Amino acid sequence: MSGYYYYDGQADQYEAHYLDACSLCRKSLRDSDIFMYRGNTPFCSKECRQEQMEMDEAREKNWKSGRSLRKSDAQNSTPNKSVRTGTVAVA
């Protein structure tokens, strides 16, 4: 067997180790430099790592903008309620 493998406790059940292939392009990492991101995510090159970082940043930006839109929508809408503003004088 080539690459890194671990035994999962089942008879004849070996699985590839997470450092066997690039997380983005799936290129083999055997006998090459490994570029890590967010602790345990391996990449074959700085370019693959950078692409993943940009995708994560865009996803996070979309998530945050969607979240802020939902908050502002919730604040601006009052379902099944009527809101009246003004001054009330009682004599």
Score class of each variant (00 low, 15 high):
M55Q: 12
Y4T: 06
E60T: 08
P79L: 03
S45M: 03
M55V: 07
G66S: 11
Y4K: 13
T85H: 13
Q10N: 13
R26C: 11
N40F: 11
N76F: 07
Q10Y: 15
T85S: 14
L24D: 03
Y37T: 01
K27A: 14
Y18I: 09
R38W: 05
D73Y: 08
L29G: 00
F43E: 01
Y37S: 08
G39E: 04
D8R: 06
A89Y: 14
R26M: 09
Q10F: 14
Q10K: 14
L69C: 15
R38E: 15
S72Y: 10
A74D: 09
D31V: 01
E57Y: 04
D56F: 01
V88W: 05
T85F: 15
E57V: 00
G66T: 05
L69Q: 14
A89D: 13
D31I: 00
Q75P: 02
E51H: 07
C44W: 04
C44R: 04
Q13M: 10
R70V: 03
A16V: 09
E54I: 03
D33M: 11
V90D: 10
C22H: 00
D12P: 00
A89H: 14
A21G: 05
Q52K: 07
V90A: 13
C22A: 00
R84K: 15
C48H: 01
S68H: 09
E15R: 12
M53S: 08
E57Q: 02
C48R: 00
E51N: 06
K27D: 05
M1Q: 05
R70D: 03
E51M: 11
Y7D: 11
G9F: 06
C48I: 00
G9L: 06
Q52H: 06
L19N: 10
E51V: 07
C22N: 00
N76Y: 06
C48K: 00
N80I: 08
M53H: 12
S72K: 14
N80V: 06
S72P: 00
N40I: 15
E15I: 10
K27E: 09
S77A: 04
R30K: 14
S77D: 02
S23I: 00
E51F: 05
H17E: 04
E57M: 02
L19M: 13
G86W: 01
S45A: 03
